[in-house]
């Protein structure tokens, strides 16, 4: 087993050096950045109602449309690639998106009291990004562009609902399903040495996600758990691309509900910075 490991390391080193001898090279790097919401969809409406009792007897509701993308937030990752020549490279990146929270509020104010309901969505996703890199020059400053695909793995959205100012709380977790989309970036890199560079880029990630499942993981009323009182069909939803309902049969409560697929936006546009090490020339 030890010999196998040594052979593997030698093989990789030989590979690296043989690439160098052709004027090509392997590169690896780490990166991190921030993404702002792009290609947004409607989330719902913030509502703020003011009720004035008689004799004024008025009720006015302010509606404010809210749009969102679950792709906004911080990301950090690693990437590695191979320069086929001084212009072209192919690379694979993997990053983790820590989505920012998006909150929708419904508030009703009466003299002396306020009732607030909130819905808060928060996302996470691992993004695999196979891409093509093209760059110019072999000076210390190099400009480059990257285009590729995104495969979203282990996407997850947490949907927290608080109603009646915290009297009831429900947490649902959406997961499953595969997400894929497109990635593009333009950037500048600066080489400190022949091997080491830092880079900064404008980055766009365009993808939507159709979750496979929604599960209520917590449900309380006045601080008391009531998850156990819910049936499986109330707690779990399977999002299906196609399904049949027998209209004459009584729906079963022992299995998850079925409903049509939904689509959640995960696009973003932002900035990324990173450090990269080039093994080639």
């Amino acid at each position: 087993m030890k010999i196998f490991k040594i052979n593997l390391i030698l093989l990789i080193l030989m590979g690296v050096f043989s690439f160098q001898s052709f004027g090509q090279g392997i590169y690896v790097g780490i990166d991190g950045g921030i993404g702002f919401a792009a290609c947004k969809d409607e989330l719902g409406t913030d509502m703020k109602t003011n009720i004035t009792p008689p004799p004024s007897n008025s009720m006015a509701t302010l509606y404010t449309s809210r749009n969102y993308s679950l792709g906004q937030g911080f990301s950090f990752g690693i990437h590695g690639g191979f320069m086929l020549n001084k212009y072209f490279g192919i690379q694979l990146g993997a990053d983790y998106l820590m989505g920012a929270a998006t909150t929708l509020t419904n508030e009703t104010d009466t003299p002396g009291s306020a009732v607030i309901q909130t819905t808060t969505l928060k996302s996470s996703m691992i993004r695999l990004i196979p891409a093509i890199l093209i760059q110019n020059g072999d000076a210390k400053f190099r400009t480059y562009a990257v285009v590729g695909l995104i495969v979203g793995l282990a996407p997850k959205v947490t949907d927290d609902q608080d109603s009646a100012s915290g009297a009831s709380h429900t947490t649902a977790v959406l997961s499953g399903g595969l997400s894929w989309g497109f990635h593009g970036a333009v950037g500048v890199k600066y080489f400190f040495t022949n091997k080491l560079d830092i880079f900064g880029e404008l980055t766009g990630n365009y993808l939507n996600w159709s979750p496979g499942k929604s599960v209520i993981t917590a449900s309380t009323y006045n601080g008391k758990d009531n998850l156990s009182t819910l049936s499986t069909s109330q707690k779990e939803i399977d999002f299906q691309s196609s399904y049949t309902v027998n209209n004459s049969a009584t729906p079963t409560t022992g299995s998850p509900s079925q409903t049509s697929q939904i689509v959640l936006p995960f696009s973003s546009f932002g900035f990324t910075i990173g450090v990269q090490y080039l093994f080639g020339k």
Partner: peptide, 12 residues
């Protein structure tokens, strides 16, 4: 007969 069923197919 007296029963019916509905096939739902998601559309994007």
């Amino acid at each position: 007969g007296s029963s019916s069923s509905t096939l739902y197919t998601s559309n994007k």
